[in-house]
Amino acid sequence: MERSYVSVLLLLIVISCALAKDVGKKDSKDTTTKPKLPQTLSRGWGDQLIWTQTYEEALFRSKHSQKPLMIIHHLEDCPHSQALKKVFAEHKDIQKLAEKFILLNLVYETTDKNLAPDGQYVPRVLFIDPSLTVRADITGRYSNRLYAYEPSDISLLYSNMQKALKLLKTEL
Rank of each mutant, 00 (worst) to 15 (best):
S159F: 07
R61C: 04
Q95K: 12
M161V: 10
Q53W: 08
Q53F: 08
A116M: 14
H64G: 07
D118S: 07
E56G: 00
A136H: 12
D112I: 03
K100E: 14
P35I: 11
E76R: 13
Y121H: 05
Q162C: 12
L41S: 06
L84V: 08
V6M: 15
D30E: 15
Y55T: 01
L168K: 13
S62Y: 04
G46P: 01
H74E: 06
H74R: 09
K85W: 01
W45T: 01
F88P: 00
A98L: 09
H91I: 02
E2S: 08
L165F: 07
E56W: 06
D153G: 10
K36V: 15
F127L: 04
K96L: 15
L106G: 00
L12F: 12
A18Y: 13
M70D: 00
G46R: 03
N105Y: 06
K92S: 11
H64I: 06
A98M: 09
E57M: 06
L132S: 13
I72E: 00
L103M: 13
V125G: 01
M1N: 13
T31C: 06
K163E: 14
V134A: 04
C78Q: 03
F127Q: 01
Q53H: 10
H80V: 08
Q39S: 14
K113F: 07
K85A: 03
P117T: 09
S131Q: 10
R135H: 10
P68L: 07
I128G: 00
R61W: 09
H73D: 03
T54P: 01
R145F: 13
T54A: 02
G140A: 07
K21A: 12
H64F: 15
S16I: 15
L126H: 02
D22M: 07
A58E: 00
C17I: 15
V134L: 05
G140M: 07
V6K: 15
F101I: 06
V23Y: 12
K29I: 14
D153H: 08
W51K: 02
L156S: 06
S28C: 05
G140F: 05
T31Y: 11
T170Q: 13
S155Y: 08
V122M: 07
P130Q: 07
T54M: 06
Y55S: 02
Q39F: 15
M70S: 03
T52I: 02
I94A: 09
Y108V: 10
Q95I: 08
F60S: 11
D112Y: 05
K166R: 12
S65L: 13
L69E: 00
I102S: 00
